[in-house]
Amino acid sequence: MTAIVRMESRNLVRGTLVLTGVFGLLVVFMLAVFPGMAAEAETIEQAFPEHVAGLFGFEELHTLEGFLGSYMFPFIWTLFLGIYFAYLGGGMIAGDIRERRMDLLLSNPVSRESVVLQKIGAIWVPLVAINVGLFVLLYAGSFVLEESIDPVVLAMAHLLSVPYLLVCAAIGVLMSVVLDRVASAQAAGLGAVFMLWLLDGLSEMDPDLEWVGGLTPSRYYDPAAILIHEEYALGDAAILLVTFVVLLAIAIGYFVRRDI
């Protein structure tokens, strides 16, 4: 039965188009400021305190790869998109329970496990649309700026962001099955992703807290390593995928047993 995933996918189309447009405008703005930032890259890097520079990982801002990898991707993909997918996941189950749509849905021959899997399966819509749309925009922007960037490297930066975004969505889904109110679940999901991202950055400043960063999903997606050094951490991507499966299994287990 795939009716749920088809319906949820259609429901996500409009919001995805709007979000892609918003992020597209943000990317255009950031590309527009790149020439000025590249000219003042050294001054900018020295202007930030060491702990702030360490938090954001500024590196080689004078190159397009460095600008994308240490400035644009950490903000747009790791932080903003991570928060969005957690927010999206937070409304998937709690909303239907709150509005009593879940009772009607489960009156059909469909299991609770299938409901969760099909609902989160619908996130393929924003995953594909946003990554493909912004890839095209960034690659076209490199020609406008008369900068060269390897399309394979850029594509890998997008592709390896998928496991990270899946984990963020799974965090939201877990909150959605645990909490009753939609707003609470969404706030908890996006708050968790933000705090994990912040904890990852702060842990890199203190050697004693380095191990804490290993518990955060953002530690396993490093766009700077991909775009600047062409390092493809497939093992880290596998860890994120396993984490996604584990979080989803916990969410399903709780949802199967909870009283709605």
Rank of each mutant, 00 (worst) to 15 (best):
L138Y: 01
G69N: 02
V212Y: 03
N11T: 13
V33W: 04
A249H: 06
D200L: 07
D200H: 12
Y254K: 15
P35W: 02
V153I: 08
A170K: 01
V153F: 01
F255H: 10
T216Y: 03
L227A: 03
E210L: 14
L190P: 00
Y254A: 13
R257L: 15
V5D: 06
R258L: 10
G133F: 03
V144L: 15
S176L: 04
A47M: 11
I76E: 01
R98L: 11
V167M: 06
G91S: 09
V27W: 01
S203F: 07
D180I: 12
L160I: 07
F194G: 07
D259A: 13
G24M: 05
P35N: 05
L165M: 05
N11K: 11
F48K: 11
D222C: 07
F56Y: 09
L25E: 04
D206A: 14
I149T: 05
R100T: 12
S9K: 02
R6V: 14
N131A: 04
H229S: 13
I120L: 09
S184K: 14
A233L: 14
Y232M: 07
A94S: 14
I130W: 00
L165I: 02
E40I: 05
H229F: 13
I250R: 04
G213L: 06
Y71C: 09
R112M: 09
H62Y: 08
V182E: 02
L106K: 09
R181I: 08
A39S: 12
I226M: 08
W124M: 13
A192L: 14
T43W: 14
V13S: 12
L55N: 05
S148M: 10
G253D: 08
L127V: 10
S70M: 02
A183D: 13
E40F: 06
G191I: 09
R101N: 12
A3H: 15
A3D: 13
V116H: 01
Q118A: 04
A169K: 01
F29G: 13
R6D: 10
L159M: 06
A188R: 03
L25W: 07
R112I: 10
T16C: 03
H158S: 14
L127G: 03
